[in-house]
Amino acid sequence: MERISTHQFMTLGAAVLMGTTSLPVASIVTGVGGRDGWMSVLPGLAVGIPYGLMVLSLVEQYPGKSLLQISETLFGKWIGKVIGIIYIIISGYLGGLLLGQAGDIYQVSIMTLTPISVFELGGILLVFYLVTSGIEVLARFSEVLFPLIVIALLLNVGLSIPRIEQGELLPILSQGLKPLFWAGIKVVPFAMTYILFLAGIAAFLPTGKKELGQFKTGIWRSLLLVGILDTLVVLMQILVFGPAETIRLDTDPMGICALEEGIGF
C-alpha cells in the first residue's frame, strides 16, 4: 500500500477544503455576518483542528486501518458497520452535492444550454479515472493542482482591485460580535467535510512518529492557508460588490469580474 508524503497530505487537504469553500463561502458568511463576515472564516475553519488531531491520534493507535475497520474494532461489528454505512452515505452525499454545485455554476454562468448531466458525467469520469489511478496519483494531482488554484484565486483577487467600491468594508464590528459567531457556525460544516475526508484517507497515512508530528502541522497549516485565502476572497467580494450583492450573487462573480478586467472589455 502506498503512503503519501507530508507535503502531499497538506496540499490534498487544502485542495479539498479550498474546492468546497472558495465559491459559496462569501455568500454564506456575509449572509449571516454582514459586512464583518470575512472575520469569521478563519475561526470557523479553526474548529476543525482539534477534530483533525483526533483523527490523527486514531491513525496512531490503529496504524494502516481505514476508518471503517477502526470503528468496527472500537464499537463492535454491528455498530461499526452502521457507522461505516453512515460515513459512506454522508461522503457520497457531500461528493454529489459538490459535483452538482460545480455543474450548476457552470451551467448557469457559462454554458446555459448544455444539459447539466454532461458536466456531471464529465466530472464523474474524471473522478473515476483519478480514483482508479490510485491514491498516489490522487495525492500528486492535488500537489500540482493546488498551487494552480491558489494562483488563480490570487489572480482573481488582484485583477478585481480596480473594481473596489469606496469604503464597503466600513464600519467594522458595528453589529458586535454576535453575527460573527453565527457566521462562524456556518463555516464549521466545511471544516467538518475536511475531517471526513481526513478520516477517509487515514489508511494511507504513514504511521511513523516523525511523520505523525509533521501531519499535525500539516493539518493546521492547510486549515490556516485555506482560511487566509478564503478570508481574502470574502474580503474582496465585499469590497467589490458590497454586502448586499455578495449575498445575492450565486455564481462566481469575482472570477467573472477578474476576467472582464483581465481581458479588458
Binding site: 454554458m111 454532461v118 469520469l125 474524471l126 496519483v137 494531482f141 500540482v144
Partner: peptide, 26 residues
C-alpha cells in the same frame, strides 16, 4: 463542450502524466 471539454481533456492528460513512470521514476 467548449472550455469544459478542454479542461476535462487537460485534466485527463494531467492525470495520465501523473500516473506515468519511467523505470520507476515518476
Amino acid at each position: 463542450l467548449g472550455f469544459f471539454g478542454v479542461s476535462v481533456g487537460l485534466y485527463v492528460i494531467l492525470i495520465h502524466l501523473l500516473g506515468l513512470r519511467s523505470f520507476g521514476v515518476p
